[in-house]
Design a protein around this nucleic acid. Structure first.
Lengths: 199, 199
DNA sequence: TATGTTTCCTAACAGTGTTAGCAAATATAG
DNA sequence: CTATATTTGCTAACACTGTTAGGAAACATA
């Protein structure tokens, strides 16, 4: 008798409804605006029904995080398969990663836990120009020293910052999922490579 | 008459008390656990008093964010001033940045809006090994191709990811404080440099 | 001593995640 | 077809959250 199966189907329909509604909210107002009650209102069920499908609110957000990684994986595979030479593959994968992040900002934020209510970086960073020039100057020096004119120091400043921030935030988020020692080695390697590429 | 000045002093003492208490909470339980009521309880004042000193909760967190940037600036200047050669300066600045982040995780999280309740990256990333090997393989290929044996592909995998994530998250957080075009150029530059350093 | 200010609290508003307990609808067994 | 058991989905509450209106008490000034 297919009664149980129909019930199962209906139940999953509700779950799907929850996910869709929640996703619309996240897309429209950001992950901070997601609320169980608002979801319940939208799907026209009472609040506790949500908890029949998800253990808690975080579980819903985790769902999106997971989906994000799946989409990203797919995009990267797709990009890689378009090329044969590994150099091209790396470049294509990087582009795919970038495009994924730009096209799926909400996913990306959930995946990597980015974006607090308070902090727009520009508001928090005092004397932005001073900070910038501080880091920029030695970069500029190395470039000048090498006599090269095709290297943009402004570009390199951002590269520097990105490498630093990327490694650190992945370490902080990942909560030592990755070897402690390795992280410092990655930094040293990245900075060494960075300096090398300046001349 | 120093009455007004004493009052001013006392008022700033309370403000200082708020900051100190709030900071202890952030350090002990993370920025998500900070609550106006808990601060009020701790400083033995009623809730609205907090709002005589800060416009809202975010303003308190912003305070820490700002302080974080000040500490970071100081550390970077200090590191830079220890060396004369720009290459050494860059290396020292990178180390200082890294150490700052490790020693001040709470500050760093506030500064760059990292760390949501839900997402520990390891829980969200499905089939971690598959994802890893996907990116690792072309990196390995380039290294093999070059015939070099002194390059650790595992290291390079993390470097790749860091560069990607760093650039993207700064762009997302910074909310286009930085030129739109520039970001893609930085990525291209960083990836080109990355590939170059593999052989 | 009376007036005006500042300080500070109570209490509320409007929301949040989460759960206990109960009523109604449904499916199964006699 | 009725009686029992199960699932389903609700109301209402608990314990929080940020934020603010309004009033009472403490204070300094005239």
């Amino acid at each position: 008798m297919g009664i149980l199966e129909r019930r199962q189907r209906q139940k999953e329909e509700v779950k799907n409804d929850i996910i869709c509604t929640a996703w619309q909210m996240v897309k429209k107002e950001g992950w901070q605006a997601l609320s169980i009650r608002k979801i319940a209102d939208a799907i026209e069920y009472s609040v506790p029904v949500i908890y029949d499908h998800f253990e808690n609110k975080d579980a819903i957000l985790l769902e999106f995080s997971k989906k994000g990684f799946m989409i990203l994986s797919a995009k990267i595979i797709e990009a890689k398969d378009r090329y044969k030479e590994p150099e091209e593959q790396i470049k294509a994968m990087a582009d795919a990663y970038w495009n994924f992040a730009m096209d799926n900002k909400e996913h990306y934020q959930l995946m990597f836990g980015i974006g607090m209510p308070c902090c727009e970086i520009s508001k928090a960073m005092p004397e932005q120009e001073k900070f910038r020039s501080l880091v920029l100057q030695p970069i500029d020096d190395v470039i000048k020293k090498s006599g090269r004119t095709d290297i943009n120091s402004c570009l390199k400043y951002h590269t520097f910052w990105s490498v630093m921030h990327g490694l650190i935030s992945i370490k902080i988020i990942g909560n030592s999922a990755i070897d402690e020692e390795l992280n410092k080695m990655v930094l040293d390697d990245a900075i060494a490579g960075f300096i090398k590429n300046l001349s």
